[in-house]
Amino acid sequence: MYAPFLRQGRRRGLVLALSLLVGGSLMTACGSSGEPAATTQAGQSPASSAGTAGGLIAIITPSHDNPFFKAEADAAKAKAEELGYETSVASHDDDPNKQSELIDAAISRSAKAIILDNAGADASIGPVRKATDAGVPVFLIDREINATGIAKAQIVSNNSQGAQLAAQAFVEAMGSKGNYVELVGKESDTNASVRSKGFADVISQYPDMKSVARESANWDQQEAFTKMETIIQKNRDIQGVIAGNDTMALGAVAALKAAGLLDKVVVVGFDGSPDAIAAIKAGEMHATALQPAALAATSAVEQADEFIKTGKVSKDEKQSIDCELVTKDNADEFGVFARK
């Protein structure tokens, strides 16, 4: 059913949460859910009792309610503690202002390095420069900023390559012809347009592939479900759905299932979320492009470690990590945003 490692944690969460709600200790509940920054002393963890000599690495990502960012932060934290650093993990919730405050906090705590999944390509330039000027090197993961020479590294997954990979699998599964629907992410988000363009680069080479609808579902499952149902009302003659992320792809799967069309329609997503991999195994989705979030995060920490110890970085600033295609054939090889 579901990954066992999540199970236990969740159940503890339920008991805790319900007892808080019933007990009326709302302040506690508020504090524990509303407080994004959780500092862990490396010394507390027996695996890395080597000491705090390494100093602090601050890990700042978007909200952990998206498992992708959680996986990325977890991987970075694990790697840093393995290398003997203290860590502080915080979420900026895509709020540039909050991101700036978190960076200020890292500077004032004399962090050795910041691992950052930033809150905006332009809005983040200033805070990154501020940290660099204060002598705290910044290593960017997952998202780029619109400036070079400030951050020590910008390690992003290759969205364009991933999208082309997914689109290629999509076209092949459809036999290079038929009517398809595209569900786009939040249209103000760069990744949404990069992925959409990647899809188009491939699909446009096949003249028999016909787009019958292109709708934004804002990365959201319920919205994808509703839009897909409406699109089906307009046109039942659909052979494929390609979505900008797995969440929307799963929404489309639910709508297609309800309409009895799922066995005739190829669904392809993006991200490689555990839910999507489960759906691929169950035969409900055809494929997804997995972003190796953990790989980028681990690599960023390794490069930070190198810089702290030697004062140099050996790799180029801009690095891209290729996405991997997940299909039924290789689904068993993948874990949470990483190869097992």
Binding site: L6, G9, R10, G13, L14, L16, A17, L20, L21, A29, C30, S32, S33, G34, H64, D65, N66, P67, K70, Q221, T247, P274, D275
Partner: peptide, 11 residues
């Protein structure tokens, strides 16, 4: 927050 706590952020 409770929903996220219970689910640990996952679906």
């Amino acid at each position: 927050g409770l929903a996220l706590l219970i689910s640990n952020g996952a679906t």
